[in-house]
């Protein structure tokens, strides 16, 4: 149980960290996909089956595709390297320091807090219960999420679509 969690932790953190260091953007994106799969494995480990599969469907199936397409569409030239230009050492040091400070504060908070009532057995939540929850008490949130998704996708298409080329008739 703990061993599986340790392995999942290692997978998630290692792939995410390596992905963020690599110069090749495609490799970063693919390693991040591995990290997202690890997160899905964590959800499975915790007993949230539905969320795990939804995570795979959304992140591995959809978001990774959008990311990869974006990487390919934003290359300056066909043969240009995908590598990312170097940033200044100062910036890297400052960023790492800030992240390290956040990590240490969060970690300290986690380690010093006493959590009450650690349940040993996973709570049972069937897909039917989840559906009843989503269609019952959370129906309004579900509808709002649907609206957000629709608006966001329409907005994304509008932003990303190239300006319409002038038609041949418009030459006058």
């Amino acid at each position: 149980m703990i061993l599986a969690l340790l392995l999942i932790t290692l997978l998630i953190l290692a792939s995410a960290a390596v992905a963020m260091v690599l110069r090749n953007l495609i490799h970063s994106a693919l390693l991040l996909v591995l990290s997202w799969c690890g997160i899905a494995a964590f959800y499975l480990w915790a007993g949230a089956e539905f969320v795990a599969f939804a995570q795979i469907l959304v992140y591995v199936g959809a978001i990774s595709m959008v990311v990869l397409f974006a990487v390919l569409l934003t290359r300056p030239a066909r043969d240009a390297e995908l590598s990312v230009p170097a940033v200044t050492v100062l910036r890297v040091a400052a960023g790492l320091m800030a992240a390290g400070m956040v990590a240490s504060i969060l970690g300290l908070a986690v380690l010093t807090t006493r959590f009450s009532g650690a349940a040993t057995r996973a709570p049972q939540l069937t897909v039917k219960d989840l559906g009843a929850l989503l269609a019952g008490p959370h129906a309004a949130a579900l509808l709002v999420t649907g609206v957000i998704l629709t608006v966001a996708l329409l907005g994304a298409v509008l932003i990303a679509a190239p300006a319409p080329a002038p038609r041949p008739e418009d030459h006058s």
Partner: peptide
């Protein structure tokens, strides 16, 4: 923290 570091350091 990994995400934060990436967001802060990568250009």
């Amino acid at each position: 923290s990994v995400g934060l570091a990436a967001a802060l350091t990568r250009g």
